[in-house]
Simulated assay, not measured.
Amino acid sequence: MVAPRVSAKTKIFELEIVLVEVAPSVRRRVQVPGEIDLAVLHGVVQSVMGWTNSHLHEFEIAGRRYGIPDPDRPSQGVADETKAKLFRLVKAGDRFGYIYDFGDNWTHEIAVEAVETAEPGVRYPRCVAGQGACPPEDVGGIWGYEDFQAALADPAHPDHAERLEWAGGPFDPNRFDPDEADRALEWLAWRPLASTS
């Protein structure tokens, strides 16, 4: 499949993605072409946050839900995310929601910080900033994550060794590598706008 190309008309949406009610704070700032659909934005969120796309998800924008509709349950009222373009749904200053893993219920708030012109030679989508490590999958949501961190921080905690082994070794909730987060988006790359020089 040929990657889409950024054109002179492409608007770049700068989004701040914040994992709600998690401490320490987990946030990412990304720039994406406005023409992407919400299915691609789902891929962006998964990749840049550090999730593994192992669970269901859903967007909520202006009171409407978007995701993967269940053909056996059309009454659920979930619009098809593959048919919903970002630039048609939001503008600068808007905020919307994204939930990942309906069991752990990871709620993200996404803010449209700016809408700008594409820069020649720049790969989009890209991660331009961030903070904090993504919680491990299946840790038990916000409260499970708090318990997980408490167990790891205290070698005398009765669950310390078990949680350390489950995590595959030490876990730093403050860790964020901007280059790693940006590289995670390479699989979604659009062909850059050509330089005019």
Rank of each mutant, 00 (worst) to 15 (best):
L193P: 09
V26N: 07
R27Y: 08
K85M: 15
D147V: 04
V32Y: 05
E162I: 06
P178C: 01
P170L: 03
V139Q: 11
D154N: 08
A181W: 03
V20I: 13
I142F: 10
D94K: 03
G43L: 12
P4M: 11
A92F: 00
L152I: 02
T117S: 15
D104N: 11
T10H: 04
L164P: 04
K83M: 10
A3L: 05
A3Y: 04
R95D: 05
A184F: 00
G97V: 01
I110M: 01
P69H: 14
V32D: 02
R28K: 04
E162Q: 10
P178S: 03
R65E: 13
T196E: 07
F13R: 07
V139G: 01
P192M: 08
A181L: 02
A167R: 09
A23D: 14
E162T: 12
L19P: 12
S7D: 01
A167L: 03
G140F: 09
E14V: 00
V78I: 13
V139S: 03
R183F: 13
F59C: 05
K11W: 03
V6S: 13
P33R: 08
H55G: 08
G97Q: 02
L38P: 12
Q46H: 01
A150N: 13
M49I: 09
T117K: 15
R123V: 05
V115Q: 01
A3H: 03
E165V: 08
V48Q: 06
P33T: 10
R123E: 08
V6T: 14
D104T: 10
A150W: 10
A133H: 10
I68M: 09
V2S: 14
P170S: 15
R64S: 11
V112M: 02
S75M: 15
